[in-house]
């Protein structure tokens, strides 16, 4: 039986890994573009109300500031991931946000707070806290893969460095 050259196997595995990095980067980017856009386009008070229901931040003014800027951060990082610009930094920020959201949901579960709306997608889609925990774990995994291999294919990072967005 023929066996593949180990070197070739390694190249194939690395190639698959980089394609997976691209897929994770684009998927995660699109999710954050959609969720951030829906929240950023709506009045800030709507997202502020959702943040208030978590009972994690006491100051009303701080909540309003968070509700104004967090969705924009999601949109900008989302597009940065889709286009592969500052990929590692964007993946780190988005992964950090996913873990923070997950921690906030766990904190409400421990405190016994019943969330009607996790606020993750603005309006239209309200996953249950358990579903949202699962989704955030998935986003954190995607962020990790995007951080590892996300910039290797079709990325503006490559274009910025060498003038060509290697496919």
């Amino acid at each position: 039986m023929d066996r593949q050259d180990p070197k070739e196997e390694l190249i194939l595995a690395r190639r698959a890994d980089s394609w997976l990095g691209l897929a994770a980067r684009v998927l995660l980017g699109l999710v954050f573009v959609v969720s951030g856009t829906l929240k950023a386009a709506a009045p800030a008070e709507e997202f502020a109300w959702v943040i208030e229901n978590y009972h994690l931040v006491a100051s009303h003014d701080l909540i309003l500031i968070m509700a104004t800027f967090l969705p924009w951060l999601e949109v900008v990082c989302g597009f940065a991931l889709v286009f592969g610009f500052l990929t590692r930094a964007s993946a780190a920020v988005v992964g950090g946000m996913a873990l923070t959201f997950a921690a906030a949901i766990i904190a409400t579960k421990i405190k016994g707070i019943k969330l009607v709306n996790c606020g993750c997608f603005g309006f239209g889609f309200h996953p249950s806290p358990t579903q949202e925990l699962g989704l955030n774990a998935l986003w954190a995994l995607c962020a990790f893969q995007a951080w590892r291999r996300g910039r290797e294919r079709f990325s503006l990072d490559n274009w910025c460095d060498s003038g060509y967005p290697h496919g």
């Binding site: 573009v33 951030g36 856009t37 829906l38 950023a40 386009a41 924009w72 949109v75 900008v76 597009f79 940065a80 286009f83 610009f85 503006l156 274009w159 910025c160 460095d161 003038g163």
Partner: peptide, 28 residues
């Protein structure tokens, strides 16, 4: 050239972000 490309990339990302939010907000 790489700095110019980075600047262009930043403009693309910011423009895409603003366009998507303002387009959805336009329905208000």
């Amino acid at each position: 050239p790489s700095l110019v490309r980075r600047l262009c990339a930043t403009i693309v990302i910011l423009a895409a972000s603003a366009t998507s939010v303002l387009t959805v907000r336009g329905h208000q």
